[in-house]
Write a protein that binds this DNA or RNA. Sequence first.
DNA 1: GTACACCCTGGAGGATAGTCTAGAGTCAAC
DNA 2: GTTGACTCTAGACTATCCTCCAGGGTGTAC
Lengths: 138, 138
Amino acid sequence: MQIGIVAKKIGLSVDAIRFYERNALLPRPPRTRGGFRQYAETDVETLAFIRRVQGLGFKLSEIRGLLNLRGNRLQPCAPVRRRLQEKLSDVQQKLASLHNLERDLRLALRHCNREMRKRSAHCPILRERNPSKPEGAK
Amino acid sequence: MQIGIVAKKIGLSVDAIRFYERNALLPRPPRTRGGFRQYAETDVETLAFIRRVQGLGFKLSEIRGLLNLRGNRLQPCAPVRRRLQEKLSDVQQKLASLHNLERDLRLALRHCNREMRKRSAHCPILRERNPSKPEGAK
DNA sequence: GTACACCCTGGAGGATAGTCTAGAGTCAAC
DNA sequence: GTTGACTCTAGACTATCCTCCAGGGTGTAC
């Protein structure tokens, strides 16, 4: 299978696949005499895996770690589990900080509305010194 | 006030302040004969403003827009309000997609746990074709 | 044997928000 | 007038995940 076919199959760009190869996420495939990459089904699976865990919020560098795990057969579930748990707590932290941000934005909007009702000429967001101490946000 | 003082006052690096100037977030201050920047209180306020709305999740390019609004006095509250609302709905979208991600991660962990209880040698995350269709995530 | 789509490489670029560096100059205090 | 802390500039670098490009070669169908 040549690279364009694989790209279409998986929904990636040709450039992205070559990028993954350069960055050791995908093994170097054999080539035709002319130098064209020739992929097998396992490569397609690897790419599908990459997409899938990328969808779980893993960075490419982390995915590289997972792929190495994937290579050996000795009960690799435990380290994967650990990584999933780490990722879950990352996500939960991000959620918390976004919730804070949401609260601060609502607060700012409320100030804004109050000022508009008063037909005041100065916007509290633009003028005030310290309207709501938005700190918690990431 | 020279740049280091301002930096300390606001909690930014000297480099960051110069960076803001280069990127038209902060006006160019007057200089001493020797070429040192001399800041006034209003510059400190501008920087405080930048920090504040950055804490509300605005990018520097967006903050530049807000700062322009800040210049004119003609009832600028309405456009600010609009931007705040846009930002709020961005945040809400991100929250939704992170919630999806959290759900997918929990699901993946559950699969993982099940497999470990079975003392199975293959990890469902590494092997399965399509364990939980993690799509909704950003 | 030629047309056309496809592939190759290496390197640049891009968005974001800065940080870091070298090498030189300045300010204030003593 | 010298010391020491501070500042100046331009440009390179960080991390992330690719995309785009030129200039050239390959594969296959007709």
